[in-house]
């Protein structure tokens, strides 16, 4: 009975649920914003990385390497606590979105690069031969095929971004984890943490299953 009272305290859970739901909303919003920005900028970066002139390709590669190397937590702390010293003061939401999408951008760029490079050379040649311009070739020929290839890893990356939003709690972002730790402190009971963990699972488990499903279908289609 003690164990249940400690970890699944119904009274505490009921009292803190509105806070947790509010936090979940912030988490989802932060996740969606970072996914949208990271994916769009990652696609642009991949195009620069693959089709740019030598100097642009090199710059893109450096960005990708740096942002895949730096720990997200370190970047987040840098953006939120160090940038104000040079006059750049971001809200915790803006700081978290910046850090999350900057890192996601690098991963997405690598995913798209692999997808674009997996499109056979003959496809580019066929597009060239009918006189399609660069952007038409991308839009009508290359990207639709690349997108099919990268859907599973891209979805995986979205899950990672959603999970990584929990790090934003260190920059005072009132996300799901932050709300849970605060509720835990207030009620002197860890049940809100359990509640938060369950909400994370409720959000992410279906997505993880979806990736599994997409990958299986993808394997069947490309066999």
């Amino acid at each position: 009975m003690d164990l249940v009272d400690t970890f699944f305290n119904v009274r505490v859970l009921r009292e803190t649920l509105p806070l947790l739901i509010e936090g979940l909303g912030v988490t989802v919003l932060l996740g969606l914003a970072s996914i949208a920005l990271g994916t769009a900028s990652g696609l642009v970066l991949a195009l620069l990385r693959v089709f740019g002139v030598a100097s642009v390709r090199a710059a893109a590669r450096i960005y990708i390497d740096v942002f895949r190397s730096i720990p997200l937590l370190v970047l987040l702390v840098l953006v939120y606590y160090a940038l104000p010293f040079v006059g750049v003061r971001l809200s915790s939401f803006a700081a978290a979105t910046t850090a999350l999408s900057a890192v996601s951008c690098a991963y997405v760029a690598e995913i798209f690069r692999a997808g674009i490079e997996a499109v056979p050379r003959g496809q580019f040649e066929a597009a060239d031969a009918i006189g399609l311009g660069f952007f038409d070739t991308l839009r009508d020929v290359v990207l639709p095929q690349a997108l099919r290839i990268v859907t599973p890893p891209l979805t995986s990356n979205c899950i990672n971004v959603l999970k990584d939003t929990a790090l934003a709690s260190v920059v005072a972002m009132p996300d799901l984890l932050k709300q849970a730790t605060q509720a835990q402190a207030l009620s002197a009971n860890p049940s809100p943490l359990i509640g938060a963990a369950l909400l994370y699972l409720a959000l992410l488990l279906p997505l993880v299953r979806l990736v599994g499903h997409v990958e299986a279908r993808h394997r069947a289609a490309t066999r």
Binding site: Q123, A129, G131, L132, G133, D140, R148
Partner: peptide, 27 residues
Amino acid sequence: VGMVFQSFNLFPHLSALRNVALGPLRV
């Protein structure tokens, strides 16, 4: 200059009709 390749190089995500119509449409 039209070109026909050894390995066809049709666009696999487009129907036969869309493959043929793409150039006239875009170019």
